[in-house]
């Protein structure tokens, strides 16, 4: 039979099993593999190496239930670091601004409680140039009779400190 049948093809293809790499290739393959693994590891960031080491240490100690803990602990630490950093970097003025509302609208109920015995409050309002003059005048004229406040001079000799 002159044509190649399936068996003939199969027989020829089996000959390809004899095609081998250069001598010594398999002996050196493992060394090459280790070398590449080391190179790859050196390119990784330090934290990842530490995390992997911790993970494999836990596995080696057979603490399987704790195997996922390093990731969780790392995540918590990162969150804590971010939050504390934000708090630390927040400027003092920003905190003051948050504590007192940005506008100077005085509630109607508080209008009656406004007294000359609180010069500290008066000074704080003066530091915030958020109101226009006309607006201020209208509010005061409409709600109450004019009052006069002397800056930086206590209007009373009573102690302003409260404990």
């Amino acid at each position: 039979m002159d044509e190649f049948d399936d068996n003939e093809i199969a027989r020829l293809l089996r000959l390809k099993r004899y095609e081998q790499p250069p001598p010594g290739y398999f002996e050196n393959f493992l060394h090459e593999f280790h070398r590449r693994q080391r190179d790859e590891m050196l390119r990784q960031p330090l934290w990842r190496i530490c995390l992997e080491r911790a993970h494999s240490l836990m596995l080696r100690l057979d603490v399987r239930s704790l195997a996922s803990y390093p990731a969780a602990v790392a995540a918590v630490l990162v969150c804590a670091a971010v939050v504390s950093l934000k708090i630390y970097q927040q400027p003092e003025t920003a905190r003051v601004a948050l504590q007192s509302p940005p506008t100077l609208s005085v509630p109607a109920s508080a209008e009656g409680e406004w007294s000359l015995t609180s010069p500290v409050a008066t000074q704080i309002f003066r530091t915030q140039p958020v109101r226009r003059f006309n607006e201020s005048a209208q509010t005061h004229r409409a709600a109450a009779p004019p009052r006069y406040v002397l800056d930086s001079v206590p209007v009373s000799y009573e102690s302003t400190f409260r404990f």
């Binding site: 039979m1 002159d2 044509e3 003939e8 089996r14 000959l15 004899y18 095609e19 081998q20």
Partner: peptide, 24 residues
């Protein structure tokens, strides 16, 4: 692609596997 290694044509199993094949 590398053709068949020269050494494989001296391989006993290789020769046996090809000896009976008429096209080969």
């Amino acid at each position: 692609l590398d053709d068949v290694d020269a050494s494989i044509q001296n391989d006993k199993e290789f020769l046996e596997s090809t000896a009976t094949s008429s096209p080969v």
